Simulated assay, not measured.
Amino acid sequence: MYHHIKKMMYTVNVGTPDVRFGNMLLEQFGGANGELAAAMQYTIQGWNCVDDLARRDLLLDIGTEELSHLEVVGALIRMHLKPMKENREAAEADPLICIAGGGGVDLRNSMGNAWTADYLKITGELDVDLRSNIAAEARAKIVYERLINYTDDPGSIDTLQFLMTREITHMKAFSAALESLEKSPFSIGRLAVTPGIGSEYFNASTGDGNEGETDMHGPWQSSFGLHPVESEMNGGPGLSIGDIKGIAGPEGRGKQDSGVKAATATDVLTVDPKPVPQTDAAQTGKQAFLRETPTK
């Protein structure tokens, strides 16, 4: 049950209305990284989370708070758009908002595009959804940070800083929830990826660039058990696709599989129309998981 309390989560004050800025603020009302998208995403994820009541509670807590953020953003937008109701020149600056929306908020972004459920990232897999939520909070934080750069109104800046800070709070909460799952950091879903190629960093961007670019190196090539593999175009062995069916060494590289059933969606690049029995495939997936999952 939802209950609305007639009190804003944050008191909004606008000294000098700015229709142009009010239009920009619509991005956080009906945009891809806005408060409605966050509220719907977290709430629906929570409703789907029937096997983990603790994290279900987390998702519903934050999803509900995002609705209160939507109310705050809406109040800020209406204050900035108020001149549209009183000034013809301001109204003509954006006919869509003035004529279609009456100078108020609408579920559209700053470019006038309608809100869509396509903005939502919901998979029903808790660890995957939590990662999406962390990224969503990071994107929203950046949008608020950029919006602050386009206004000099102290009250608007204070409101946006409040909202931006709460995005960071939510990032911390979602990150803690993800870490508390006690799974391998890269164990997505229930089955591990194919052994061998899961640890190969493929150097697929080679050659000297037009502006002095060259092959770069960093921890992304060697951390978490990764090791670099040169492209065949650069004289290297290429990816060990043959490792999927257990062919070791260079003779297995670049060869298509012939009969091993894919355990995950990651493996579909080598699926043959003649799969092995399900029991063998299940055992293959189990062995892959044991080899690829790090021990604590």
Rank of each mutant, 00 (worst) to 15 (best):
I142R: 06
T116S: 15
E92L: 15
E145T: 03
L147W: 01
A138E: 12
E92R: 14
W115R: 06
R108E: 06
D153Q: 08
L130N: 04
D158T: 15
A173R: 15
D94L: 01
A100S: 12
T151G: 05
E137A: 05
I157V: 04
N149A: 13
G103W: 04
T123M: 03
N133M: 09
N113M: 05
G155S: 03
Y150N: 11
L160E: 00
T165E: 10
I99F: 15
G124H: 08
A173C: 05
A93L: 14
F162R: 00
I97F: 00
L163N: 04
L163M: 07
G124K: 15
T169F: 01
M111Y: 05
G155W: 05
N133Y: 07
S110G: 06
G101R: 09
T169P: 02
I142K: 05
E145A: 11
D118K: 15
A173V: 03
R166M: 04
A173I: 01
D158V: 00
I157F: 04
G124T: 09
W115E: 04
L147F: 02
M111Q: 13
L120T: 11
L107W: 00
S156F: 00
P95G: 12
A93W: 08
R131D: 02
D158K: 14
G112F: 01
E137V: 11
E125F: 06
G124A: 12
